Simulated assay, not measured.
Amino acid sequence: MKWNKRKRNTNKLSFWKRIRFKYKLSFINENTLEEVWSFRLSQLSVFISLGVFAFSLVAFTALIIIMTPIRNYLPGYLDVEVRKEIVQNALRADSLGRMIEIQNLYLKNVTGIISGTIELDSIREIDSLARIDADFEIPRGPEEEEYVKNFEQEEKYNLAVLNTNPLPVDGLFFYKPVNGMISSYYQADIHHFGVDIAAAPKESVLATLDGTVMYAGYDPNQGNVIQLQHKNGFVSVYKHNELLLKEPGEQVVAGEAIALVGNTGKLSTGPHLHFELWYNGKPVNPEDFIVF
């Protein structure tokens, strides 16, 4: 036993001695046989030098890809940027179209006034956002004035009338979470708080809004589930996934792939995505916000 242990120690020492043993590399003038230049190196120094060189090469290549337009050719990188640009261009086009309609209506009214075909007082509004005084055309009678006064007094402290749409969706664009057809609709009375979207297996599941992954895990009934917390109190839930691509705490952008469509969980009968949308702890119908 002592001999074997001594032998192993000797082998270790010989190994370290062998890789640390330095060799001399010399450059000799062929005509004069004079040593022009020489340096010493070992196997360990060669390995370290090659490792540093490989790491530097990888870091330099990654820096070039990140800092230059080459990154646009990476698979999956351009998808999110393209989607954002498409949405922004669509909003710009819609705004420009609306402004053109307003300008055309304005010019039409001016032309009609100049030509005498339209009376000045007949023009009510150009932009649909403008408001007309309620008593502009029909004066209110005494009974109507009394009714309006009583109604305004009763609703004076009713804050609900100040906001006809309690959901803060202004400026929000909800991405369709997956390409497919709805196989089961939102039915709160039977506790089906979402929509089932039949899709191809391993189809990319996209984040409907910018947000943070608040849960990503497996449930025996729901399969692989991922939940995202969005601004303004919205939470989106994606169930029965084949694979989850994000972990809790990660930030995601709208349209980014977060999972793959699957058929996991006891309640799943085929490849599909069960998608839910919640607001302030209460389920809402996703079809009210997304065109599937």
Rank of each mutant, 00 (worst) to 15 (best):
V148F: 01
F151S: 07
A200Q: 12
I182R: 08
V205S: 01
K176C: 07
R140T: 03
E145C: 11
L172Y: 04
I123W: 04
E152I: 11
L206Q: 08
A199Y: 02
L172G: 05
G171H: 01
V205M: 05
N158S: 15
D189A: 09
Q153M: 15
H191V: 09
R140D: 04
E144Y: 00
L162W: 11
A207I: 02
V161D: 15
E145G: 01
E154I: 07
E155L: 15
F174P: 01
E137D: 15
V195K: 02
D196G: 02
Y157H: 15
E152P: 06
V169E: 10
V169N: 03
A188D: 10
S204Q: 12
L206K: 02
V195D: 05
N165D: 12
N163Q: 14
K202R: 10
A130R: 11
A188K: 09
E146F: 06
F193K: 03
Y157Q: 14
E203G: 08
I197Y: 02
L172T: 10
F136Y: 13
P142I: 08
Y185Q: 09
T208W: 00
F174W: 08
I197Q: 02
E137F: 12
E143T: 07
E203H: 04
I132R: 09
Y175G: 07
A134H: 11
A199N: 03
A188H: 04
F136A: 15
L167A: 00
A134T: 10
Y185G: 05
A130W: 09
E203Y: 05
E152S: 06
N158F: 08
D210W: 00
H191S: 15
F136H: 12
N150W: 07
Y186G: 05
S184H: 05
V169T: 06
F193P: 04
H191L: 07
G180F: 03
F173A: 09
A200M: 13
Y147P: 00
M181W: 13
R131I: 08
I132L: 11
Q187N: 10
N163G: 13
P142L: 03
D196R: 01
V169A: 09
Q187Y: 04
V195E: 04
N163W: 11
N179H: 13
L209C: 06
L167P: 01
D189L: 15
A198L: 09
G180D: 07
K156V: 11
T208C: 06
K176E: 10
G194H: 01
V178T: 11
P142V: 03
A199D: 06
T208F: 05
G211I: 00
V195Q: 01
V178F: 00
E155A: 09
A160N: 15
I132F: 03
K156H: 15
G180L: 12
R124D: 15
I197F: 05
I126V: 07
E154V: 14
A207V: 02
N179V: 10
H192A: 06
V195Y: 04
E154Y: 13
V178L: 09
